[in-house]
Nucleic acid binder design. Structure first.
Lengths: 143, 143
DNA sequence: TTTACTGCAAAATTTTTGCATTAAC
DNA sequence: GTTAATGCAAAAATTTTGCAGTAAA
């Protein structure tokens, strides 16, 4: 899992003629061993204790690179922070976002994906990716 | 349609003990007679020619108020700008967003909404609203 | 009159960039 | 040696707030 991602990223780097650096390795490790849906700042803070010399800009640029390489994906939950999540291997998942406690539940549903494809083709639209988020209250917060 | 929204907003204002002002009327008119999916800045610029004295902060605060009142909804397409769209009367619509030309197609699909409800209830989750966006290339841009 | 609203400018956030230095190839 | 990456600090871009003056109730 992690290895596959690392390999993908290494290939991406090589293909683009970019360089493999200590920082990128560290950031990738931290990213892969994190919760999903990390904001740049969260990742930066997480790193800072062990690697105080890594700058915010490097984290920022590296996450962009992860997204370009396909091992991460930008998400926006509307709280004014860009987050990055791990991409699954091909599959896509969607989110239930609790407006009270902020917890995030992931789910996948083939039926929805299928309907999406139908909708898109009825408009002649080619889907590259999608985003489905359900906002409300989680079971705990309803109590 | 527009009248209904205006009425709703007037009621909201009254109920909350807020005040009805010239600026709010102007901004509401401009908002209602605009394309959907307007960013704060776009609305501000649109207003500026006719009403140069209206400040950005007023537009900003008024749009927040529209969202609170239920006649508008915040949306984030991930381009770093908060946008506001008209809320339909009860119904919700989703978006096809073209990554090349930026055009936005709206659609509604009951089947998807139904599945969403099923998913939510399987997690004990209470949906307040949702967001579904399909990103890719529109028919024109595929050519 | 009292209370909320406006407009301005300033502050806070978040994202992005320039550039000299450092490290990878 | 070249070229790209880093880290810093500064710039942009957006969102948010404080406050004195203004307007609605």
């Amino acid at each position: 899992m992690k290895k596959a991602k690392k390999k993908l990223f290494r290939e991406f780097i090589a293909e683009k003629g970019l360089k493999s650096t200590r920082q990128r390795d560290i950031i990738l490790d931290a990213f892969l061993s994190s919760d999903r849906h990390l904001s740049i700042e969260e990742l930066y803070l997480k790193l800072r204790s062990k690697h105080p010399s890594i700058g915010y800009a490097t984290v920022y640029r590296t996450l962009k690179l992860f997204a370009e390489s396909g091992i991460a994906r930008e998400i926006h939950f509307g709280d004014g922070q860009t987050r990055y999540e791990h991409t699954g291997e091909g599959e896509h998942h969607d989110h239930l976002v609790c407006k009270r406690c902020g917890s995030i539940i992931e789910f996948e549903n083939e039926a929805i994906e299928k309907i999406q494809d139908e909708i898109a083709s009825s408009y002649g639209f080619l889907i590259q990716h999608h985003k489905l988020e359900l906002y409300g209250l989680c079971a705990k917060c309803r109590a």
